[in-house]
Amino acid sequence: MLTNKKIGFIGGGAMAEALMRGMLNAGLVVPSQLTVSDLTAKRLDYLHSTFGVSTTTDSQEIAKQSDILFLTVKPQVIGSVIDTIAPVVGKTTVLVSVAAGVTIATFQGKMPGVPIIRVMPNTPVAVGEGMSAMALGKYATSAVSEPVAQVFASVGQVVTVSEEAMDAVTGLSGSGPAYAFVLIDALTDAGVRVGFSRQTAVLLAAQTLLGAAKMVLETGQHPAQLRDMVTSPGGTAITGVHVLEQNGVRAALIDAVVAATNRSREMGRR
């Protein structure tokens, strides 16, 4: 579905790099289809030498020529980017924003009739294991959104949600890698405490969480069912789970997601 489509990126940071790498590795596009703009010449040189993509410092030129235009810039500068490209974006261009907290209405107000898709990806897109949620604007039909979903599927999993759910997405999967890193760090410290080197403890902790997550995704079983497979009567695992429950780990994770969701809502009202 991306054959012969011109795809542009305004902002050449880590997210743009991850998406370009994913598309190219998956064979969805060839380098000649991709153009990226950035304010930093060194960054553009890197992207050109790494992927063979075209580069420019002219965001209006990219906006004019792109069939799909990704806005991969920080939320702090999205306003000026919108003002710059709004006069030249055609109604056949699909505009995709990954700027957290910036609503579809913000774009639609400046670019009426343009298909807008808002996406919240998380940082593991950098290693091809991201989780992305898409919210579709009024003019973003399934025919318009499917190629965009393909792009994000090349760097992990993707779901479509209502825009009202985007703050909850931010609280769960958007912020979720931070929770996972805390867990890995804590398990690593525990491994050191019981006698492992830190290098070995990190490997044991990280691979264990990776394997557990993969079992959930690939078996389709409820996490509680998989937990029951590990927790034999009177054994070590159920003893450890008991301690986690005594210390409120489950409640703390729920509270963390709720707090992050509420914070996302607060930031969106600014």
Rank of each mutant, 00 (worst) to 15 (best):
K64G: 04
T84H: 09
G79P: 01
G52P: 07
V30F: 10
F70E: 07
I7Y: 05
K6E: 11
V94S: 12
E61C: 02
S54M: 09
A18F: 10
G11C: 09
I78Y: 02
A100E: 08
R21F: 05
V81I: 15
M23G: 12
G101I: 02
V94Y: 10
K42W: 00
T103F: 06
K91L: 00
I7P: 00
I10G: 13
S66V: 02
G101M: 03
G90H: 15
A100N: 09
T57C: 02
K64A: 03
L95N: 09
D45S: 12
A16E: 02
Q65C: 05
I104G: 01
A16I: 05
S54W: 00
G8C: 12
G79R: 05
T3A: 14
S49E: 15
T56D: 05
L44Y: 07
I85F: 10
T57E: 09
I10Q: 12
V29N: 01
V98S: 07
A41N: 13
P75Q: 06
I78Q: 07
S37D: 01
S32E: 15
T35W: 06
V73N: 02
F70Q: 08
A18T: 10
V89A: 12
A14F: 02
V29D: 03
A18Q: 12
P75T: 04
D58C: 02
S49R: 14
L28W: 05
E17L: 04
I82L: 15
I82P: 05
D83C: 03
T72L: 00
M20S: 10
D45N: 13
T57N: 04
V81Q: 08
A18D: 07
T84D: 15
V96N: 09
I62K: 07
D38W: 02
L39Q: 14
R43I: 00
L71Y: 03
G101C: 03
I82V: 11
M15V: 15
V88R: 13
T57A: 13
S80G: 07
L69A: 08
T57K: 13
S59H: 04
K42F: 01
V89Q: 10
T92V: 01
A26R: 09
A18E: 09
L95K: 11
G8H: 11
K64V: 13
V94D: 06
G90S: 15
A99H: 09
L34Q: 11
N25W: 06
L28C: 07
T50D: 04
N25A: 14
D45Y: 08
T72K: 02
G22R: 09
L47M: 14
V77L: 00
L44T: 05
F51R: 02
P87A: 12
A100C: 12
T40G: 03
T92K: 15
A99N: 09
L34I: 15
T72N: 01
Q76P: 00
V81Y: 09
F51D: 01
V73A: 08
